[in-house]
């Protein structure tokens, strides 16, 4: 019985593959109407690549800090054309400074044309944030689920910082909960997706996360990983900052 099922699956798989091949041929006969594109998230501090080797970085208000862990969810990517047409990529990605392969998101069959906006959710949408375990990069093994509360951690930065008394203290920011979901909109200068180029790079600036809208002083906040009332202000500050920390770099 099991063998029979196995054969049937193989057969069905084979038939499916042959179908898709035919379709690709057809589109090749015309001018390419869709293209595959990789969106690469480039993690920086003020434009410079981030090292996890205890290098000190300085934020806008002069806090010195390091980065050991930097992870955040980029989900529900939408590309918008100048005429308003939208391309929805139903994907869930975990950008991780220490796992560079994860920072390239491949979008398949994107209609060709000029795009003016890239939008995504910084975090996990409500449906998946509150309905138990999910798969792929939302798997609990990625360490991004609260273990004493409901839902996912959307953004995580851990390292240390040097406080105003010149002592090295741990820096631990875990941002999550329904109020913390960020909606990011990156302006694109009429990026032409044409099937020739294949890589769209988006910069993330960690310093902006602590200063783009309002300054976050590590001397005041250096360990936040909860949903407490006292954290509400910090949550909204960091969320608002994060939404403005992404920018277009180039397409090649």
């Amino acid at each position: 019985m099991k063998n029979l099922i196995f054969c049937a699956i193989i057969l069905a798989g084979f038939l499916l593959v042959s179908c898709t091949k035919e379709e690709t041929k057809q589109t090749n006969n015309n001018i390419a109407t869709v293209a595959n594109i990789n969106v690469v998230f480039n993690n920086t501090v003020s434009g410079m690549a981030i090292n996890t080797d205890n290098t000190n970085y300085t934020n806008a208000i002069g806090n010195k800090y390091t980065v050991d862990i930097l992870k955040y969810y980029v989900t529900n990517i939408v590309l918008e054309k100048e005429n308003g047409a939208l391309f929805y990529a139903k994907n869930y990605n975990l950008i991780d400074l220490n796992e560079t392969l994860q920072n390239t998101i491949s979008l398949k069959n994107v209609p060709t044309g000029k795009y003016t906006k890239l939008r995504f959710i910084l975090g996990v949408d409500s449906a998946r944030n509150t309905s138990g375990l999910q798969v792929g990069y939302l798997d609990p093994s990625y360490g991004m689920i609260w273990t004493w509360n409901t839902g996912y951690i959307f953004f995580k930065h851990e390292g240390n910082f040097t406080n105003s008394a010149n002592q090295v203290k741990p820096l631990r920011f875990h941002l999550g909960t329904e109020a913390a979901r960020g909606f990011v909109e990156v302006w694109l200068p009429e990026v032409n997706i044409n099937g020739i180029n294949s890589k769209l790079t988006i910069d993330f600036d960690l310093n902006q996360a602590y200063s783009s809208s309002s300054n976050i002083d590590f001397n005041v906040d250096n360990d936040r990983q909860s949903t407490e009332e006292v954290d509400r202000f910090w949550i909204s500050n960091l969320k608002n900052n994060l939404e403005k920390s992404f920018s277009y770099k180039n397409i090649e």
């Binding site: 509150t130 309905s131 138990g132 375990l133 609990p140 689920i145 273990t147 004493w148 509360n149 409901t150």
Partner: peptide, 11 residues
Amino acid sequence: AINHLDAQSLA
């Protein structure tokens, strides 16, 4: 604190 049995054991 946790709204789903599947995520509960993580705690």
